[in-house]
Design a protein around this nucleic acid. Structure first.
Lengths: 205, 205
DNA sequence: AAGCCTCTTGACCGAATCGGTTATTTGTGC
DNA sequence: GCACAAATAACCGATTCGGTCAAGAGGCTT
């Protein structure tokens, strides 16, 4: 049954990343098992040996990716942070740290949310229900608004930060050679600059 | 020869958008002519009737998309604008206006820059040489820096704006139902808020 | 060396799909 | 009803699809 789990971990990671990359890039229908096998440097037959079928492989990746994302978010306790910028920063750092270790997950999950293939519809709805709850970190709270010099800017700044996060993710995805570390530093600097300029002076620590 | 150009324009647009969308989403190799035909609501045979071959269709789209992008950038004279935020805003508005009319172009061009299929390598290198020059609008000039309350923020703000633009583009791409109009308004509001908070008071309005 | 055992894969299967062609149908003006 | 052009259903050989299977390849014991 679990032929795959008895492989040495490095090989597992290679295969998983190849599969995540192919499914993430092409979607379920257009990603062929042969693509994945070639990218992973193994034979197509081995893929079926390890996972049984294409659908079972996809299901495995869904739970795999879901577990990684959820555990990384769980370990960072967002409710502790009471400041908007702190929550944004923590969220970004958490995500960056996770993606640094597993760069193909975000693309895969993003594609899973827009996947339309009939063959995996059932396992996808299940997946969406389980992970959909982890999106409530970036809400604007009422005690955030009062810290702004102009409270009307709060909503705007939140939108800016959301767009930045999307762009940041897209940037990381397109450009694999990028040093996550330095980009994260830059991101921190940007958020600091935003806070410094938008907040009332009494809230600048 | 030019069977396609004698079609009524609405049908041309439908077919072009279907093709741009498929190639943009899947890449040259994985996008099949049948996908495009079905998405456009015509028969596969018609596609070959209009364009001759898959490669010729791709080549047509390249020049089509290249012309639209380049002409839209040419009509907006960036050198006229001497302020960083004005240039950013103009660039965004120009791009948004173009994408509103032709929402599949950005995805297609983005994918063309990472296309690796041997079959279209020759026409792609040609395309890249012609369009590569149109990326020099968002540079930071020295007279921008002095307008900031803290000149060190200038570089950071530029990075924020670049990330926002990427996120903005990604947002538009993923979410076809989004009203470009309202998003553009929001984007303007964000840029205005940034300028209002980062600039010295004497440079406001 | 021989036998055994696990892991891997080249070769193969029928079915589907690929890019591309052709013959028939469909629509249209007269 | 007829002629002509536009569109497509049906088809072509070739390739690729998801999936199977029996023949290696490499190690371990004897």
């Amino acid at each position: 049954m679990n032929k795959f789990l008895s492989l040495k971990e490095e090989k597992q990671v290679t295969i998983i990343n190849a599969a995540l990359g192919c499914f993430g890039k092409y979607g379920y229908a257009k990603a062929s098992v042969n693509d994945i096998a070639v990218l992973a440097g193994i034979s197509k037959a081995s893929v079926f040996q390890y996972f049984g079928s294409k659908k079972q492989l996809y299901a495995y990746l869904l739970t795999y990716a879901g577990n990684i994302i959820m555990s990384s978010f769980r370990q960072a306790d967002f409710d502790e942070k009471t400041d908007l910028f702190d929550r944004i920063l923590l969220s970004s750092l958490t995500e960056a740290k996770t993606l640094e270790k597993n760069p193909y997950i975000s693309q895969f999950i993003l594609s899973a949310w827009t996947e339309t293939s009939d063959e995996v519809r059932d396992i996808l709805t299940e997946f969406k229900n389980e992970t959909g709850k982890f999106r409530n970190h970036l809400i604007l709270r009422k005690d955030d608004v009062s810290k702004f010099k102009n409270p009307n800017d709060a909503e705007t700044v939140l939108q800016i930060l959301m767009l930045m996060a999307e762009g940041y993710a897209a940037h990381c995805r397109n450009d694999e050679k990028t040093m996550y570390r330095s980009l994260t530093d830059d991101f921190q600097k940007m958020i600091a600059a935003m806070r410094r300029n938008f907040y009332k002076e009494e809230y600048l620590l």
